[in-house]
């Protein structure tokens, strides 16, 4: 456990001592802030409810931020270590490959969560914008953040997997963006597919629908299990990829 914590701390620190985390956080908060400003000033004025705002912010605007941030956040995890050769130092220390993968995941997930924290400041601001006092549903807010973290964690694991396949940062970020974008777009299949069977089959796997559910205050256990298990599965595949260097290298 001590080794895992050491790896995790180093991973988190590596983001915060470089400008990457700050630039990403600035861009992320800029997009989210603009979305919030628009929703608070336009939609809330036109009679939208608190739930409408949550759905629009976390089920809509958040996607722009997530698709922009996650590939950049995850691209360097393994690609940079491979490029600089530090992966050899890391994997000749007495640590398990799975510890390295899971600590790296938890590291970028921590940075991702920290990026979201300032968005909690939107709610005190909202009272100033609204004409009449808003009744907050803290449960719905918590569900929206749970959705953001579950779906974000899943996409971060995809980014980590892509990073483990290359030592080129550009290839790592482009490939993870491509896979994440495809997964996101596949989330529209239940709405746009002309094939009824495909609509029916794709619905339980649609990230877009899941995010709308979470941001509407609905926590479906099936969705939670889906994201936790998918994330774990992808991290295990990443561990296998890392282990494969032993016989492939």
């Amino acid at each position: 456990m001590k080794r895992f914590l050491t790896l995790w701390k180093r991973e988190v620190a590596s983001y915060f001592i470089s400008p990457v985390a700050y630039i990403l956080a600035t861009m992320f908060l800029l997009v989210m802030g603009m979305g919030f400003w628009f929703l608070a000033n336009v939609r809330l004025m036109n009679g939208a409810t608190f739930y409408d705002l949550l759905r629009a912010l976390y089920g809509g605007v958040a996607w722009f931020a997530v698709l922009m941030v996650i590939p950049v956040l995850s691209m360097r995890s393994f690609a940079e270590e491979k490029r600089s050769g530090t992966l050899e130092m890391l994997l000749t220390a007495p640590v398990k490959d799975s510890e390295v993968v899971f600590s790296k995941f938890l590291g970028i997930f921590t940075v991702y969560v920290v990026m979201w924290l300032p968005t909690l400041a939107y709610y005190p601001l909202l009272q100033n914008v609204a004409h009449e006092p808003l009744a907050y549903d803290y449960g719905a807010m918590a569900a929206a953040y749970l959705g953001v973290f579950l779906v974000g964690g899943f996409y971060l694991s995809i980014g980590l997997l892509c990073s483990s396949l290359t030592q080129n940062l550009i290839i790592s970020s482009i490939s993870s963006f491509a896979v994440i974008a495809l997964t996101f777009l596949a989330g529209f299949l239940p709405a746009v597919s002309p094939i009824p069977l495909l609509r029916e089959w794709s619905e339980p796997f649609s990230s877009v629908l899941h995010m709308l559910e979470f941001s509407g205050g609905v926590i479906d256990t099936r969705s939670v299990i889906l994201y936790v298990s998918s994330t774990m599965f992808i991290l295990m595949v990443t561990t296998r990829i890392l282990e494969s260097r032993r016989w492939r290298a």
Binding site: G85, T86, M89, P94
Partner: peptide
Amino acid sequence: RQSLGYLPETCPLYTE
């Protein structure tokens, strides 16, 4: 790995 010390050829380090 615990029982030995190893210096790889390129001496990679976290320079930050």
